[in-house]
Computed example of a mutant assay.
Amino acid sequence: MRFIFCAALAISLLTGCRPDQIEHLRNTKELAIEAENWQVKRILPKDLLRATRWAGDSLTSHADRELRRVLAEKLQAGGVAAALPYCRPETYASIDSLARVLEAAPRRVSSRPRNPGNRATLSAAELTPDTLRTVRRPSAEVFFYQRPIVLSDAQCLRCHGTPGTDIAAADYALLQKQYPQDQATGYKLGQVMGAWQVQFRRAGVAEFYTMKTRKIMKRRKLF
Rank of each mutant, 00 (worst) to 15 (best):
A7D: 07
A10C: 14
S12R: 12
L13E: 05
L14W: 02
L14T: 07
T15K: 10
P19C: 12
R26L: 08
N27T: 04
L31E: 07
L31A: 13
A32R: 10
A32N: 06
A35L: 07
E36S: 07
K46A: 13
H62F: 14
A63D: 08
A63G: 11
D64S: 15
R65Y: 09
L71Q: 04
L84I: 03
Y92R: 09
A93F: 00
S94W: 00
D96I: 08
R100D: 08
L102Y: 03
A104W: 01
A105W: 12
A105R: 15
V109I: 14
S111E: 09
G117D: 15
N118V: 10
A120C: 08
E126W: 00
L132M: 05
L132F: 01
L132W: 01
R137C: 11
E141Y: 14
Y145K: 11
Y145F: 15
Y145H: 09
P148C: 11
C156K: 01
C159D: 05
H160D: 05
P163N: 03
D166Y: 01
D171W: 00
K177N: 09
Q181T: 05
A184Q: 03
A184R: 02
K188F: 07
L189V: 10
G190N: 10
G190W: 06
V192Q: 04
M193P: 00
M193C: 05
V198K: 11
Q199P: 06
M217E: 04
R220P: 00
